[in-house]
Design a protein around this nucleic acid. Structure first.
Lengths: 248, 248
DNA sequence: ACCTGAACACCGTTCAAGT
DNA sequence: ACCTGAACACCGTTCAAGT
């Protein structure tokens, strides 16, 4: 099978310096993941190719495979790195609803710092040991809030969908291959919706155009939906309180 | 610029039969989009290449470009097709909360019928004229429920995140390039979490493993999260009712 | 253990023709 | 208007060596 050090078990962080005395490291997995993240932050996920990344690292493409596995595995590692970057609010005596609000802002801040990765992280199942502290914190807070263990999966999924899911949708990608004047064209079509065909849509369009899902032509990167996010978290917390009240 | 019939404006559905009398159509945009959707349903979005699709259609790859534009545009058209497939509950005197519940189930049913497309549709901004009826219906119901026009964008985004966002996250893709025994490995690691390190996680693991975001090794395709979805919609509706009550 | 070098089997997309 | 045919400039990935 030819075991290769793709997994954490072999991350011995060997710092064998090629030139002996100097502190200069040789290439390792960490460095590759960092370089990949930087590259994606700059040029987007689609632009990242194994060959270009190798060029940046001044190495042959095959070297990347040896350290970090194939492209899919590399992307997974990059996602894990970003997840680990999320600042966890301390689990102390902060009320659970307040804690969730702080976490939400923290998640959004981190994802916006790596907006180009949002489509990738959202479209993959993310199962990484690196996010255990984050998950534990969420579960701890929810459990302390009074939710029984048997409800935890539902509550936890609901919380994740509001806090992570919204930011992913907010930051999803703009059409890349389309005409450059696509945005203008669509904007025009939105503003000229016939009230006869779509009365409510036409009436509320000034409030909606550009700021709502399926009615916008820019990513949340360029057109932030922070107010909606706050509303989402508000509704989440109000709904959870109702659940707590009726189940007790 | 060499206008090509990539857009709806040129879908004249020309049915020029090549052999004259027969009802046999020549290739057109509709047929290509259908074939692409079928292909993705069977083999996944990653497997769809312009060349393979051309092979299926018994035509040269360039023909697809002429009718449907490049790959990104083709995928956008496929997404639009799926959106149009969502069955809209009638907007009559059904209470708004009940209507949202029915819509939610309808959305989930359609997306599960095209599970392989979920990552694609979720990672792209979807701005299509074809979904105007869907959007109008949602806005109509929310407006009738009593939400003022100025709040509609927030409420609408919140509703979309619960109803669409969750299903997309539920159906996101399993790691493709990883080892075949990855699932088993991760499952093992989950079940052997140290209570000393992650007490709540370890305690609730029997309820969580395999059924919650970031703690599962299968897509919602193979491990449905229907109960969580119901909970998400419950919390959404309870939260919205609270918003209605306090703003009135 | 770590990296080079070359090669394989593909891609998306474009361009010049055909009819 | 619609399609063929060939070509360009890339890809991810593997395999056999090197040190």
């Amino acid at each position: 099978m030819g075991r290769k050090p793709n997994q954490a078990n072999a991350v011995d962080a060997a710092r064998k310096s090629k030139n002996g005395t100097s502190g200069e490291k040789s290439l390792n997995r960490e460095l590759i993941v960092s370089a990949a993240l930087q590259f994606i932050d700059k040029f987007g996920e689609e632009a990242l190719t194994m060959r270009k990344l190798a060029e940046v690292l001044e190495v042959y493409p095959t070297t990347i495979y040896w350290h970090a596995g194939n492209r899919a595995q590399l992307l997974a590692a990059v996602c894990e790195r970003v997840f680990a970057e999320i600042e966890l609010p301390p689990v102390d005596d902060t009320p659970w609803d307040e804690w969730l609000r702080v976490l939400a802002q923290s998640v959004r801040r981190t994802m916006r710092a790596h907006r180009n990765l949002a489509p990738t992280v959202s479209s993959q199942i993310q199962v990484t040991v690196g996010s255990f502290p984050l998950i534990e914190a969420i579960l701890d807070v929810l459990s302390s809030a009074g939710f029984p263990d048997s409800d935890l999966p539902f509550v936890y999924n609901t919380v994740c969908n509001s806090i992570f899911g919204f930011v992913w949708v907010e930051l999803n990608a703009e059409p890349s291959g389309a005409d450059p004047d696509w945005a203008e064209t669509f904007q025009q079509r939105l503003l000229s919706v016939e009230p006869a065909d779509y009365p409510v849509l036409a009436r509320a369009m000034p409030h909606l155009a550009g700021k709502t899902l399926m009615l916008r032509w820019q990513s949340g990167d360029r057109q932030p939906l922070g107010d909606s996010y706050r509303y989402v978290v508000d509704v989440l917390i109000a709904g959870l309180k109702e659940k707590l009240a009726t189940s007790a």
